[in-house]
């Protein structure tokens, strides 16, 4: 008899883990609360560092999960810990008796309107990273040529007042990528990036940064934006500090893109409450061990993959999904072998 594995969340982590678990011979049930699979990846246009299409990447992941029982628009209604397994009732009425559960509930984007000083939801020209990706994907960029565009790094990340002192890891590279893409569309516009420090840690990220400066002439300003106001002619006036020249700075922009960071997802929290899963101070779930057992939770048979245990890049998420599959395989073999 095949063991049932329940995977919660149909983003990259959930998809990759499901594909691997299926290959290992398990009966995988994948649930996703949205209409479509893919999570944030489905909403993105292109990916750093190489600018490959998000759609193609997602399609590759989706191909692998053929044969997996995928239930979209389905949430976990309730879950109980049994002697050796989990009894999960889904919102579509199906009951699953799972020998292991993988939580891949990912992240929510920080709600940029919380940083009211940046004027998201108040001024028309202020958008988020996700809004810009959608505009690229739907080809809905404003046709009127903007004269100046700004990117604000670390919106809701590394910001104790916003409740998140941690780095969201992806925003620096995303901002640089998006800055280049915007410059490609509007070659005459001045493009600024307001950053605290650039965390271009991954392979080719630094190249991207150099390219942005040399080829695209993006202007990098080290300092946080303090506030955004509207000028009489409807443009955005941005006040910031240039900490390299130790001077306050003000620029008029037509578009300001806020790099909203990663927060623990609300749907993940609902699952966490049902099982009393522990979280760390940052709100993300706590692993059994932060070095050796990142994929394990404190509950036997309950595993994590992806951004539900903290901000991660896409490659990191995929690694975790694969190692979670291996961990689950090991757990099942140890627990159920004598049967």
């Amino acid at each position: 008899m095949k063991n049932n594995i329940l995977v919660i969340g149909g983003g990259p982590a959930g998809l990759e883990a499901s594909a691997n678990l299926k290959r290992l011979g398990y009966n995988v049930i994948l649930i996703e609360k949205d209409k479509q699979l893919g999570g944030h990846l489905a909403k993105w246009d292109r990916l750093f560092p190489d600018g490959v299409s998000a759609r193609q990447t997602l399609n590759a992941l989706l191909e692998e999960v053929s044969g997996v029982n995928c239930f979209t628009e389905t949430q976990l209604q309730s879950i109980n810990v049994l002697d050796k397994s989990y009894n999960a009732i889904l919102s579509n009425g199906i009951t699953v008796l799972a020998d292991a559960v993988l939580l891949a509930s990912g992240f929510d984007l920080f709600k940029a309107e919380k940083k009211e000083e940046y004027g998201y939801g108040i001024y028309e020209g202020v958008i988020t990273n996700a809004d810009l990706e959608e505009a690229f994907r739907e080809k809905k960029l404003p046709s009127k040529q903007p004269q100046a565009i700004g990117f604000v790094h670390c919106v809701g990340s590394r910001d104790e007042k916003a409740g998140n002192p941690a780095c969201s890891k992806v925003c620096c590279a995303t901002a640089v990528k998006q800055a280049c893409e915007v410059k490609e569309v509007y070659p005459d516009a001045d493009v600024y990036c307001f950053y605290m420090d650039l965390r271009m840690f991954g392979r080719h990220y630094e190249d991207l940064y150099l390219k942005a400066q040399k080829e695209f002439g993006i202007r990098f300003i080290r300092g946080r934006v303090s506030e955004v106001a509207e000028t009489a002619d409807g443009r955005l006036q941005v006040k910031a500090e240039d900490t390299l020249s130790s001077k306050p700075l003000r620029v008029s922009l037509d578009m300001l893109v806020l790099m909203a960071g990663m927060r623990p997802s609300e749907s993940g929290k609902t699952v966490g409450r049902q099982l009393n899963l522990t979280t760390e101070e940052d709100g993300f779930f706590s692993s059994a061990d932060n070095l050796l057992e990142i994929q394990r939770s404190k509950l036997p048979g309950f595993f994590y993959a992806g951004a539900c245990t903290g901000a991660k890049t896409l490659p990191d998420t995929l690694h975790e999904a694969r190692s979670a599959a291996i961990e689950i395989d090991r757990y099942i073999k140890e627990k159920f072998s004598e049967k």
Binding site: E116, Y123, S226, A229
Partner: peptide
């Protein structure tokens, strides 16, 4: 108040 543009509006 400048950091809370709603007030100024």
């Amino acid at each position: 108040s400048h950091l809370t543009p709603k007030i100024i509006k």
